[in-house]
Design a protein around this nucleic acid. Structure first.
Lengths: 362, 362
DNA sequence: TTGTATGCGTTATCAA
DNA sequence: TTGATAACGCATACAA
C-alpha cells in the first residue's frame, strides 16, 4: 500500500504553497492564479500521479460526487439496465452511484436514506416512490435533491423520468381488440404505486374507448409486482371471470404468474388465452411462449433520471420537470386471435365508468 | 437541510470534552472512561440523535466501512443475486457495498479499482478475475484485501468463494449419458477465466470416465459468456460436428445462444438435440423449453465472499481460504433421451486424453 | 480517568 | 497573484 501523493507533495514539487496548488488544480478557481504557476502545478501533479482525496474534499466541501440510488430490489430484472443507465450517465459527469435496496420496507428505506445522507450524497434517484410518500415529500421540502425513476408520487413537486404508462396500456388493449378479443382482464399492480394505478386507469379508459367492441373489462388486483402475486391474481380471475380471453399483466412478473397458473390448468397460451406483460424485461423473448409486452426503455430511463438530477444539482432552482419517454408494444408469441372459449360470446354486461372496488368486474 | 449534530454538541450536552465523548462512544475505547460519563455521553447522543460523520471518520482512520464490488456487468442476470448476498452479509457487519461494472475492460477495471481505493474502501470483492490477472496479483502483494467471487486466478494467493465447477459439469455429463447420449459437445466459456477452463477440463474428464459409453466429445470455444457468442459457437459446432445429440453450454447465456441457432435451423429441443446450461440464472425455468442446468448458488456465493472478506479484515494474516460450495444439476425440459439423428451411431473415433486445441474434436 | 493538542487532506477566506 | 491560516468532524497520542 505505497504512500499516496498529497496536495502538499504537489505544492512542494511545484515550489508553491498548498493553497495555491489547490487553486491551480481546481478549474473553477484557476483564473485566480498565474498561467506560469498553473502549468508548474499541473506538471507536478502529473509527474507525481496526484489524485485528490475525495474523502478530505467531501469533509471540506460537504459534497461527495456520489448519488444515492434507492431501489426496491436489484434482483428484479427491470432494474439492472436502469442502474447501468444511471451509472453510465453519472460517470460522464464525474459522479458515482451508490445503490441500495429497500425490499419495499419503509423502515429500511428510511435507514438507507439516512445512511446515504450521512455519506454526504449530493442527491438521490428514487425508484421506490409510492403515490403518497411522506419521506420523499419531507426530503424535497428540506431541499434534498431528488429525482424519481419510473414511479412517482401523486403531487408534482419532485422531478421524474417516466414512461408513458397510459399510452403503453392503450397499445396493449388496442392490440387485443384487433385480435378479436372482447373480454379482457387486467391484473393490476399495487394501486399505491403510480404505475399500478395509472396502468389500471388506462386499461379501463382504453376499453371504454372501444365501446361495444368490448364486452367485459375486468380488473383484479395483484398485491405486488411479483410472480407469486400474479399467480394468485390469476387464480382469482379464473374463479370470478372465467370468460376472459386476454390477460394484461400489470408488469411482466405478474404476467409470468399468469403463465404459471395457466400452465397448471392446462390452458395453452395463446391458443386458449392471450397474455401480455409490461416492461419488456430482459429475456422475456425467450419465454414459453415469448411474451408480448409493453416495452419500457429502462436504460434510457436511468440515463434521463441521472441527467435530470445533474441538471438540478447545477441549478437547484430549476423547475421540477417530469420527463416522459414513449412506450411501445412488442408483439411476440403470447398473444393470438381470440378463438375458442368466450371469444365470440355475447355481451353480459355493459362497461360502466369505473370499478367499484379493486376486484370489481366492470 | 437542518443542521446536523456533531460530536462537539454531544460533548457539550454531556458536559465533557469532545475527545472524551469520542472515547465514550467508541465501544473499543469505552473502557478508558468512567461508567458515569459513558452514560452521560450516550444519553446526550441519543437525545440529539447523534450520528457520527463517516466522512470525517474515514479521513481520520483511513477506513470507510465500504467494500468495493467489481463485476463485469450487473446486467448479466447471474450477478444481482450475488450482489444481494454480498450486501446483506455486509450490512449485518455495518459495511456497505459500492458496486462497479468493468464491461470486461481491463482499463475500466483499473480505473474503478483506483477510484474505489481513493474512496478508502476497506477491501474488494472481485467478480472479474482472470486466470492471469496482474492487477489482482499486484493488489494482493500490496496488502489490499481481496476476495474473489465465482472466478479465480490460477495462483492460490487470493481467497475466494467458489462453486464446484468440476462436480457440476460431471453431473451434467452423467445426466446426458444416462439419457443415452453418446456424442456430446461442450461450448466452453472463455479459457482465460477459471470457470471456462475448469468446466472444459471437467467435461473432458467426465466423458473419459464413461469410456466406450461416449463416442464423441467435442469442445468448441465461445469467446464470451454471452448469447451472441454462444450462437456463434453453436453455428461452428453444427458445421464441424453435426452428429452431437447434446450441447453443454459453458453457462446459461451460451446455452441460450444455442437455443436461438437451433430454433433458426428448425431443430427441436430436446427432441432433436438436448441443451444444458450452467448457473441456473433466474427465470431459466420459464424458457422455451425450461433449461436443464447446473445450479450455482449465487446469493450464497455472495454471502460467503463477504464473510471471507470480513474475516480477513478482522485478521489480515489469516490464510487465503478458498471456500467451495456444492453445485447440483437441475433437470428441466431441455434434456431428453437421445433419439433420432446421431443417437445410436457407432463410434467413429475413440476418446483421446485431451484436445489438441480449442476447437479440437476429441 | 479526563482534557488537550494535533492531524487526516482539502478548500476557502483573508492578508500580504 | 500568492501565502498563511483556519476549518470541516473525528480519533488518538500524550499530558495532566
Amino acid at each position: 500500500m505505497g504512500r499516496v501523493t498529497t496536495l502538499k507533495d504537489v505544492a512542494r514539487l511545484a515550489g508553491v504553497h498548498p493553497g495555491t496548488a489547490s487553486k491551480a488544480l481546481n478549474p473553477r478557481t484557476r483564473k485566480d492564479v498565474s498561467a506560469r504557476t498553473v502549468e508548474a502545478v499541473l506538471n507536478a501533479a502529473r509527474e507525481l500521479g496526484y489524485l485528490p482525496d475525495p474523502i478530505a474534499r467531501s469533509l471540506r466541501t460537504k459534497r461527495s460526487n456520489v448519488i444515492g440510488v434507492i431501489l426496491p430490489d436489484i434482483t428484479n430484472p427491470v432494474f439492472p439496465p436502469a442502474v447501468r443507465g444511471i451509472e453510465d450517465a453519472l460517470r460522464e459527469a464525474g459522479y458515482t452511484a451508490l445503490v441500495g435496496n429497500t425490499d419495499n420496507d419503509p423502515g429500511r428505506e428510511e435507514e438507507l436514506f439516512r445512511a446515504m445522507q450521512g455519506r454526504r450524497v449530493d442527491g438521490f434517484i428514487i425508484g421506490t416512490a409510492r403515490r403518497d410518500h411522506p419521506l420523499l415529500r419531507k426530503a424535497a421540502e428540506d431541499g434534498i435533491q431528488l429525482v424519481q425513476l419510473n414511479r412517482v408520487t401523486d403531487d408534482q413537486a419532485i422531478p421524474a423520468a417516466l414512461v408513458d404508462d397510459a399510452g403503453g396500456m392503450r397499445l396493449a388493449v388496442d392490440h387485443c381488440v384487433a385480435l378479436g378479443h372482447r373480454r379482457l382482464a387486467h391484473l393490476a399492480g399495487p394501486l399505491d404505486m403510480s404505475t399500478g394505478e395509472h396502468r389500471r386507469q388506462a386499461f379501463l379508459a382504453a376499453c371504454e374507448r372501444h365501446g361495444d367492441a368490448i364486452e367485459e373489462a375486468v380488473v383484479v388486483n395483484s398485491d405486488a409486482y411479483s410472480v407469486d402475486a400474479g399467480a394468485r391474481a390469476t387464480e382469482h380471475l379464473l374463479q370470478t371471470a372465467a370468460g376472459c380471453t386476454a390477460i394484461l399483466g400489470g408488469n411482466d412478473l405478474i404476467a409470468l404468474g399468469a403463465y404459471r397458473v395457466l400452465a397448471e390448468r392446462g390452458m395453452a397460451i395463446p391458443k386458449d388465452i392471450s397474455v401480455l406483460g409490461f416492461n419488456d424485461m430482459p429475456f422475456v423473448d425467450m419465454f414459453q411462449p415469448p411474451l408480448t409486452t409493453v416495452h419500457v426503455p429502462q436504460y434510457h430511463l436511468g440515463v434521463e433520471a441521472a441527467r435530470l438530477l445533474l441538471e438540478r444539482l447545477d441549478n437547484p432552482d430549476a423547475p421540477a420537470k417530469r420527463l416522459v419517454l414513449p412506450s411501445r408494444l412488442v408483439v411476440r408469441g403470447s398473444t393470438g386471435p381470440a378463438t375458442g372459449r368466450g371469444g365470440r360470446r355475447r355481451s353480459v354486461s355493459p362497461v360502466p365508468r369505473a370499478p367499484k372496488d379493486a376486484h370489481s368486474s366492470v
